[in-house]
């Protein structure tokens, strides 16, 4: 099976300064390209989903995931990294 090269990063938590910057920096350092960002704040609660191309990335996906998870802990946010196929398979035929 042909595996895609995009991942979905989701971030949920209380809004604060520097969330997007913190995450974008990690992605830039890894050579991952942000394709789309969708973000809302509902009563101070921050949710964001990000589509990222990791096809030309310079680090392993597992390392990127670990860095993002660490950042999440630092900022008090729940960060998930999942391959795009999981959403395409579940929600599209």
């Amino acid at each position: 099976m042909e595996e895609g090269t995009r991942i979905i990063i989701t971030v949920v938590g209380y809004d604060r300064v520097g969330i997007i910057a913190g995450i974008a920096n990690i992605l830039a350092d890894a050579g991952a390209n942000i394709l789309d960002i969708n973000q809302t704040i509902l009563q101070g609660f921050f949710t964001m989903s990000m589509v990222v191309d990791v096809g030309k990335m310079s680090v392993e996906l597992t390392d990127l995931t670990r860095n993002l998870k660490n950042k999440g802990r630092e900022l008090g946010l729940e960060i998930n990294v999942q391959h795009e196929d999981i959403f395409r398979f579940m929600h599209r035929i």
Partner: peptide, 17 residues
Amino acid sequence: PFSISKDEIMETIHMVQ
């Protein structure tokens, strides 16, 4: 193109977590 809505993404995450 990636056409999954944010609600669908959150639904999947909710299922797992």
